[in-house]
Design a protein around this nucleic acid. Structure first.
Lengths: 153, 153
DNA sequence: GACAATCAGGACCGTTGGGGTCCGGTTAAG
DNA sequence: CTTAACCGGACCCCAACGGTCCTGATTGTC
């Protein structure tokens, strides 16, 4: 169903959590795990991927943790997906991977998926995490983080 | 990588093949398999799904086969994906599937993926198979179907 | 200077679902 | 009646993903 990975979903949750500047500017992965309800090892994995993509910066050692590298209005869904799932390409038959398709000499749509890939990339590149956080969300759901943490403990 | 299934790829190939009106208006799945290089059972499976979605019409019995129900300029990629992979929804957290997410009481992006889903649907709904077939494809690749069949035999 | 906290980067499994195959039944042409 | 073709399942296999864990490297704190 054109599913995108659950990890990406988590990544969005984590990034939005990280954007809450009202708390410590640097947050640890166990802390984020506790706050979001996502298992700690998974949070760590997501954070590592986001770090590799330079979406977050890490601080090692005692009192270390993670912080955002850009504000969320500068981060698009496409960025997150690319960070977690790799480059956005819907099929194996994208340009550059030539020769992988064993029926390509017959295939009538050879290379035609680029049109679709571009459309997807454009659509995804036009949505920022800031929009996902705020846009038309009932106030009830708008980051009642503190209360949730308390409830989770 | 936001991969869409190979079956969908095949479906596009099959539909484009089916659109070649220069041959029999009704084509059999073995015939399409031969022409496209896709294994016959797989072609049959794709055709069944397309039939269930009313993208193709089937004629049973001897001298039966499949034919298009609409011209390709009226069929979008979104239609094909929906026919093969089910409704387009990137995550499990879409509206209507309420209660499946065990962290939803903490999740800060509750329901926010709708924004992304809509963007994808719009992007995919704007591309027709006719565009995928013709748009800027070098003439060399433009359905030299007859030659290919001959070569495949 | 020793210790503790925290990230880094792998290796490691279990499960899921897609990809592919096959079979019995049904329909319709000849 | 025979044959050709679709129909609708059931079925299996494997790769990929989600999730976990372990062992280092780094840095602040006592």
């Amino acid at each position: 169903m054109l599913r995108l990975s659950k990890l990406t979903d988590y990544a969005v949750v984590v990034l939005i959590r990280l954007s809450d500047e009202s708390r410590e500017p640097v947050q640890t992965s166990p802390g984020i795990a506790l706050a979001t309800g996502v298992p700690e090892p998974t949070v760590a994995k997501v954070l590592k991927a986001l770090g590799a993509a330079s979406l977050v910066a890490s601080q090692r050692g005692a009192r270390g943790g993670y912080r955002l590298r850009q504000t969320l209005d500068r981060v698009t869904i496409a960025d997150v997906i690319a960070a977690i799932d790799g480059p956005i390409a819907l099929t194996a038959c994208v340009e550059g991977s030539g020769g992988c398709c064993d029926v390509q000499n017959i295939c009538a749509v050879k290379g035609r998926w680029d049109l679709v890939n571009d459309a997807i990339r454009t659509a995804l590149g036009g949505i920022t995490l800031a929009e996902m956080r705020t846009a038309s969300v009932p106030a009830v759901f708008r980051l009642p983080a503190h209360a949730s943490i308390a409830a989770a403990e």
